[in-house]
Design a protein around this nucleic acid. Sequence first.
DNA 1: GCTGAGTGTGAAATCCTTTGCGGACTCTTG
DNA 2: CAAGAGTCCGCAAAGGATTTCACACTCAGC
Lengths: 329, 329
Amino acid sequence: MVVTIKDVARAAGVSPSTVCRALSAPELVRAETRERVRRSAAELDYSPNRAARGLITGRTGNLGLVVPDLGNPFFPGVVKGIQARAREADHAVFLADTDEDPAAEVRLVRTLAKQVDGLVLCSPRMSGTELRGFATQTPLVLLNRRVGRIPAVTVDNPGGMRQAVTHLTALGHRRIAYVAGPRTSWSNRERVRGLRAAVAAAGAHLAEIGPVQPQFDGGVAAADPVLAAGVTAVIAYNDVIALGLLSRFNARGIAVPAEISVLGFDDIALAAMVHPSLTTVGLPMESSGRAGVDLLLALLRDPEGAGATRRELGTHLMVRASTGPPPTD
Amino acid sequence: MVVTIKDVARAAGVSPSTVCRALSAPELVRAETRERVRRSAAELDYSPNRAARGLITGRTGNLGLVVPDLGNPFFPGVVKGIQARAREADHAVFLADTDEDPAAEVRLVRTLAKQVDGLVLCSPRMSGTELRGFATQTPLVLLNRRVGRIPAVTVDNPGGMRQAVTHLTALGHRRIAYVAGPRTSWSNRERVRGLRAAVAAAGAHLAEIGPVQPQFDGGVAAADPVLAAGVTAVIAYNDVIALGLLSRFNARGIAVPAEISVLGFDDIALAAMVHPSLTTVGLPMESSGRAGVDLLLALLRDPEGAGATRRELGTHLMVRASTGPPPTD
DNA sequence: GCTGAGTGTGAAATCCTTTGCGGACTCTTG
DNA sequence: CAAGAGTCCGCAAAGGATTTCACACTCAGC
């Protein structure tokens, strides 16, 4: 039914060994034979059984990808980048969504690890210790997180916050609020760190609200405390929270940006679709994904990983309609 | 390094055959032996090599999932449902994103087919002929599309449109516009069909605009023609288009819903997050995914597919703030 | 005590591909 | 012309699990 290497061998009048070599180590077989084999293979539409090959080479040609929540619009962008790059390198991608559950994440990594050559862990929620443990057993790349010497792709979160603060202070804001994401999030910690430094350097004042769930409701819930803090601008941990803020401000009749400026983080697609459109710090989502796969493939080629194992990508400020000068009182 | 069936056999003092049976056909081995084997397997943390098993059984335990564009917020929901159900059935999921390119879709299906037991094709863009061709070669389930007798999960698009029209006519609307999605989209054709019937039954008038790209810009572009059509309500092919409409109406100073009501389709997460929040026809995204996997697994168990091969899911109207009575003039 | 059925286990074949080893052959060189 | 070096290709083993077949054993029945 399905064509095997033997069928090709018979058709080309050679042994299976020669077929194998003709296709994957061409220099070992005479040009004439090679062509004959290749023609037969093409005619029969033969392609090697990956399971059988994997059994002997130890390589599956598959990558594993673990994300916390596809429902969070940040992740599909990353997944697309990973997909695309993996496909270029002739690798297929297993996808697993953990629903933000660290325990599920551990289980999934454990089971996926056995079926793939390497894993990309996107914003992993498990502990650093667990990550280090997995990293010694299986090739692994982190996205949006740094742990020990595990290869990782991150974005310049402090730099992004600097851009955000520069924008706001240039507009004249001196009192800024931050709505924090989950305490367990590495990205949140990095953003807070960069934000504090930037605000201090600008001689402005920072009010920290939260942490809240990095979801719409989290933003809704944070809106009133933000107003109570008496600030003229607010930066949210991510765009989805910022949308929650906008919604609640709107409900309370607070004008944005006339009375308060709102700034998000991530630049998800919706940021440009809402009203007022959201000023936000854009992250290179697809590039992150691609870079992650590049690092992983490099790691597979050279397991000792002498090469570059870190990659930090830049952010870009997208100025839209939700930020403006502070009210003049 | 990695533990094989032989290691377990040695530890339990039996042959590999017995280990295999103890784990996958328990009734064939004496209770005492079975327990001994299981303990050894657990101690060594053994799990069978899926590639080796697949080689002989012909089953990989993997499913393939093909989607047109993860960036479209409709699909991540479906993917989550598929993920979850597949995992419950102990199957892993290969994900491929075609970027809305029918040719890429064909290529991806062809390559994926060889590595999986079956495929779920989500809103496939390729031709019906091609789909039928693949369906004879590999177990396959369609989501959001019907072609011949290929097993499929769909939603009741005409029913959803009926709900939408009922809502609008109850509010008093008599002149309704529809912004159409791509002509090649099966869902769009079904929605148009249901819409025409419902509008006719209500004795109202329908203005058809488009087709436009099912994206934000498509909605922006359609807004002015909608206004020119002199309607009091507009239904969009999907929520993303509806968001584009809202944005353009806002820019032109048209009040929603005071001057015009806007209705979307899909109930993506953002629909509740924008202002005014979007009235829309909700689709069971996760359930669709789960149902798709159920159909596929049934098909794998019984390739002749005597069982139910079709599943149509209901829609639900989410009334929010973007619809209201027509202006009284 | 022997036969027959029935139960539990192991040996070996099988799935498909890759690869180490060695045989056959050609060609160069002394 | 013989020896040595190269080139090209086939044989067979290997990889890990499943499954068929057959063997060994137990026990009931006569």
